Simulated scan of single mutants.
Amino acid sequence: MTPVPDVIEGFKRGDPDAVRAVYQEHAGAVYTVARSIVHDRELAADVVQQTFVKAWRAAKSFEGNRQLAPWLYSIARRTAIDTLRSETKPTRGGHAPETDIGVQPETFERTWERFEVRRAIDALPDGERVVVRLSHMEGHTHEAIAERLGIPIGTVKSRSGRAHKRLAAALAHLSANQPGADDVEKVEDPT
């Protein structure tokens, strides 16, 4: 069924009733066009919405002597192709495309372990605590820490070594609770 000329004129003016009538008449066919390109229900539904928004914005430029359906389908086709491209292109910075992953809720044990680690770090002497936080929480190298604190790199290394020994002793109960903890090889800090 082709919309009556009054509906097309109302659509061009942006009349809400005319826009609604055009949507009701053509949304199913626009969805079919979109789905044939994107092959995904949710993306196709997004394409339908985008198509009608674009058509509504461009309605004043629609020539009344043309048929409305092919005009809408061409908008849907271009919108679907653009949507498909944006879904498959890598994220900014050249990274791989985004993927959805399941998020595991935080367990009580993990929360308790995190609390114990924070408590052990807070219990360190000031100089050692600062070095541990800059190194492990902010990711700075020993050289960067020495420069930032204005102390020799040897001092940073010795504070780091002492802090690691204190933390290992303070947190030994955590590794004892882990399965296979006795099998873990002791690794010296290379710095």
Rank of each mutant, 00 (worst) to 15 (best):
W112H: 13
R118P: 00
V130A: 12
F115C: 01
E106G: 10
I121S: 02
G127P: 00
H95S: 14
L124K: 05
F115T: 01
F108T: 12
F115L: 07
R114Y: 03
P125T: 07
F115R: 10
I101H: 13
A120I: 11
P105T: 11
E109K: 02
R110I: 05
G127K: 02
R114N: 03
P125V: 06
F108C: 02
T99N: 01
T91L: 13
E116K: 12
T99K: 13
E128F: 09
R110D: 14
R92Q: 11
P97N: 07
R92F: 01
E106K: 05
V117T: 08
V131M: 09
G102P: 05
L124D: 05
T91N: 10
F108W: 07
E128P: 01
P125I: 07
R110C: 08
R119T: 09
V132F: 03
F115E: 12
H95V: 14
V130M: 04
Q104V: 14
V132N: 00
E98T: 15
P97R: 08
R118C: 03
R114P: 00
I121T: 03
V103N: 06
R110G: 05
D126P: 01
I101G: 07
R92L: 14
R119N: 10
A120E: 02
V131D: 01
P97V: 14
V103S: 11
V132D: 00
